[in-house]
């Protein structure tokens, strides 16, 4: 077993997901079979091989810092689940 039920619960909390007992069992089983297959990568010699994080050679793209138009506040709030005035409302996070 590459990954235990406990690992799955830990990773789920990192990913801000929650699962039922059934889902946790299913994901544990599926992730194990996937990771077992992926073990074949460990047989590849990658000594001194640099990792590639891009498909083509790209560098940081700088531009001049010129102010442009941005979305008006009301427009930005249009898709919000709970807009209040010019804010995004969320559940209370500070106890007083």
């Amino acid at each position: 077993m590459k990954i235990s039920k406990k690992d799955v619960e830990h990773v789920a909390s990192l990913a801000r997901l929650q699962f039922s007992e059934e889902e946790t069992a299913l994901f544990t089983h599926q992730l194990n079979s996937i990771l077992e297959y992926f073990e074949k990568l460990q047989n590849v010699d990658t000594t001194d091989v640099a990792p590639s994080f891009h498909a083509v050679d790209v560098r940081n793209a700088f531009r001049d810092d010129i102010p442009g138009d941005s979305l008006p506040v009301q427009e930005s709030l249009k898709n919000a689940p709970e807009p209040v005035q010019s804010f995004f409302k969320v559940p209370k996070i500070i106890e007083v």
């Binding site: 990568l41 091989v49 640099a50």
Partner: peptide, 10 residues
């Protein structure tokens, strides 16, 4: 590891 093997594939 995957990113290194990606280099080899490229």
């Amino acid at each position: 590891k995957a990113s290194q093997v990606r280099t080899l594939i490229q």
